[in-house]
């Protein structure tokens, strides 16, 4: 894997998110606890809501448009809803956020 540095963990608020632009649309990078981050697709499969704008609770996010809830670890919709969002490998090294370039590239190709 080759890792791309996309920023510092403190650039993302606790229980917040920032977007990363890619050729195939935006990713959302979430921070839940002090040092726990997730990278997922930013687009809700329901009506395309920007998930990065949702309220983050536990390791889930609620879509701001119609309250669909996704588990950030698996990308699966919670509760009675169906659907999922893609998840991408991300890791933290000395405070820097590193995103897996290959899977982002695959996303572009897909």
């Amino acid at each position: 894997m080759s890792w791309i540095d996309i920023g510092h963990i403190d650039d993302i608020p606790l229980r917040g998110s920032r977007v990363v632009k890619t050729r195939a649309g935006c990713l959302a990078v979430f921070r839940t606890a002090e040092a726990e981050v997730f990278a997922v697709g930013n687009t809700c499969p329901h009506k395309g809501g920007p998930l990065s704008e949702g309220i983050v609770h536990g390791t889930s996010v609620t879509c701001p448009l119609h309250n669909m809830i996704f588990d950030l670890e698996t990308g699966q919709a919670q509760g009675a809803d169906d659907g999922s969002i893609p998840t991408y490998p991300i890791r933290i090294e000395a405070g820097r956020l590193l995103l897996d370039a290959a899977s982002v590239a695959q996303r572009s190709a897909a």
Binding site: R18, V20, L99, V104, A105
Partner: peptide, 16 residues
């Protein structure tokens, strides 16, 4: 203000 901008823009990254 920074929070209103994308964290990173990878649209210029060379595809592998």
């Amino acid at each position: 203000a920074a929070l209103y901008q994308p964290l990173a823009d990878l649209t210029q990254e060379a595809a592998e």
